[in-house]
Amino acid sequence: MTHETMNAPAAPREGVRLHPVTVKKVIWETDDTFTLQIDLGALGNTFNFLPGQFNMLYVFGLGEAAISISSDASQTGTLAHTIHRVGTVTSGLAQVKRGDVIGLRGPFGAGWPITAARGKDVCIVAGGIGLAPLRPVMYAMLRERTAFERIILLYGARSPLDILYRVELEEWAKEHNVEVLVTVDRGDSSWKGYIGVVTTLFSYIKLDARATVGYVCGPETMMKYTIDEMGRRGLAEDQIYLSMERNMKCAVGFCGHCQYGPEFICKDGPVFALPRIRHLLDRKEL
């Protein structure tokens, strides 16, 4: 298997029902980004997801937004979503308090192909909120740390205050032998780390091109430069995976909004092997 697919339903099913779920904790990661920990209640018995999949989260009367799952897929009964407050629905989600109920549909889409990386080096490159859908990959790999060789995480944030999961980043580096390199676009007086776009971090690592799998998630421009950099370092295109974002209303391929050339990001993606969409990446206003 080269590509983890959604929990492929045995028989055609309806667009997945909306379930009320309870928020059990709100963690503000940065000024504008927060994590909702969700108690799945009865739904927890049947809810399974793959790292890289997303849910549609509903705020009563306000609407739905597609949000990737950022928690450990091996945990049952609970989920986390890390959300960047930017639009109407995510601003509504930002007002949710502990004990409040939101709606959830999912999980949807294709996930990261973790099995494809076993026995290999893994190079994860994340920009901004793009780290959120990759955190479940880290959890999955660290649970079987010895099944993977080097794990490299290159992460770019806007500023030191915008760095997500700071405590975990340190823990992954110190306790799990993960090569974590973080850079920021703009430093501040306390920042002693790297400054610059995330691709500058490639100059501080050496990749074994023949044995490395790349997972990339972030703004499209950042992903394009990252792919170029990986290409220059000899990574084969079919070893590179990226997660795409588009407007989504239905999440099941009916509403048409997420079309990306011939692909529906919601059901064919959001995670794609690079060769499948390579020819689309340079098309403006696609």
Binding site: Y58, K249, C250, F254, C255, G256, H257
Partner: peptide
């Protein structure tokens, strides 16, 4: 053509959506 969007709304009391 099959594209659609969704519109979420509430009544004045805010109890029905």
């Amino acid at each position: 053509c099959f594209c659609s969007t969704v519109e979420d709304s509430t009544d004045l009391t805010g109890t029905h959506a």
